[in-house]
Structures are given as C-alpha cells and as structure tokens.
Amino acid sequence: MSRLVKFLKAPWHFMLRLRRDPNARFWFLISLATAGYVLFIVAMLVATAVHSTPGDLLSALQSREIQHSIYLSLLTCSLTALLSLLTAVPIGYLLARRKFFGKALVESILDIPIVLPPMVIGLCLLILFQTRMGGFVDSVIPFTYTVFGVVLAQFVIGVAFAIRTMRGTFDQLSQRPEDVAMTLGCSRGGALWRVTLPAAGKGMVAAASVAWARSLGEFGPVLVFAGATRMKTEVLPTTVWLELSVGNLEGAIGVSLLMVFFAMIVLVAMRMAGERW
C-alpha cells in the first residue's frame, strides 16, 4: 500500500523538485529535447514498419529483381568496405603521423566527397571516364554502367568517411611504442604492422562499418554512373526508387525495412567490436 502511495506521489515530488532546483530544471529541459528527437526517429521507423502487413512485405521481397538487388548490395558494399579500409589505413596513418607541405590542401581535397552533392560525384565520375585516360581504363575494366561502377561510385564516398575514422584512430595512438619497436629491430612498416595496427582494431572495424553503411544507402552516384538496370546494376536504394516510381509501395517499404535491418546489424556489430577491443 505504502509503495502504491509512493508511486502515486512521485509525479508530485518531481514537480516540486523542478520548481525548487534549477539544476534539475536544466537537465529536465535537455532530456526533453533528447527524448523528442529520439521519439521522432522511432516514430518514423515504426510508422514505416506498421504501414503494411508482414505478409505483403515478405511477398514483395520474393520478387527475383529485389532478391538480386539484395545480393548485389551486400556484395558491392562488402567490397567497397574492404577497398575503403585498404585505402584509409595508409592515408589516415600519413595524415596522423607526418607534417608536410600542402597537408591542409590534401586534407581539404580528401573531404570533398563528403561535402559534394552525391549526384554531382556520379556526374564527375561519368565525365572522368569520358576522357582519354578514363576511356582507356574503361576499356580494360569496364566501369560505366557495370557492377564495377557501382563499387567505384560507393567507394568514392565510403572511403572519405573511412579516412576520417582511421585518421582519428591513429591520432589517438601514440607514436612512442612504434619508436621503441624500431629501436628493437623493426622497420617503420614493421612497427606499424606489429604494434599500431593491432591496437587500431576497433578503429578499423569502425572505418569498414561506416564505409559499408554509407555504401548501402548510396543512391545518386550509383544511379548516374552505374545506371539502374534491373538484374544488373540495381542496388537497394535504386530498388526503393524504382518500386516507388511504378507505385509498388509495399516493395519500396519492404526494401527500406531491410535496409534499416542491415543498418541496425552494423550498429550492433560496431558496439560489440568496441567492447571487445
């Protein structure tokens, strides 16, 4: 009984505390703003999830085109994440460890894909491959309107985020242990490989994950540079757009929820990796 009374009185006590304690008011207002934004995100996802029945969504996902797009998205995003990591590790290491002439300019150039409108990146890629050099590369490995093009379009943006992550990781790892490893017989590369990279494991998982997640949602550059040919260069964001444009809302929602699911997996994987290292 007394617990029930206590429970009923709790809001009253809370209001009293808010009136008397300015510190509590401050944290209450901040918490209110946070709760509002969190609710907004959850509301978007829940509204999308409950818009159609699970049966409708499952049957939409059984379409051959959509299944191919799921397969292609998973394949290209994984390739992009791997390539982004391989590129981001040396660049992030250079930026974290060395001062050199023009470093600020190089850093700005590396950030261009982050600030440029994605559609423009696709257009720039398309035009690059119209030049003589681009044409030659295209004749050896066909990029325009192919799966390789999907990977390249995703890579341009994914790698920019991976570089930022790796640079931050190497910034936080002291150079001193590498120096000691060199006095013990390692080359600079050996010290990086044996001492710093094992310590950068969490950062590498984060860099690959962020590249993977960015690539999964990349639409503009893929559409412009690789096209939206069904069963060929169609990835999940393209599917959402194609399904919406033919009025198949169930298909678009089903694919969107699938992308939300993949994004959640990446989030959880990153958290788990963070705890492991």
């Binding site: 790892l173 242990p177 000691v180 006095t183 001492v195 310590a199």
Partner: peptide, 15 residues
Amino acid sequence: RQIGYVPQDGALFPT
C-alpha cells in the same frame, strides 16, 4: 644500433 631505449611513460605496446 643495439641500443635499449626506455621512453618517458614506458610506451608499452597496447595489445
């Protein structure tokens, strides 16, 4: 150079 070096904070290998 066959020199043993102990930096200020030890700089142990993190992993």
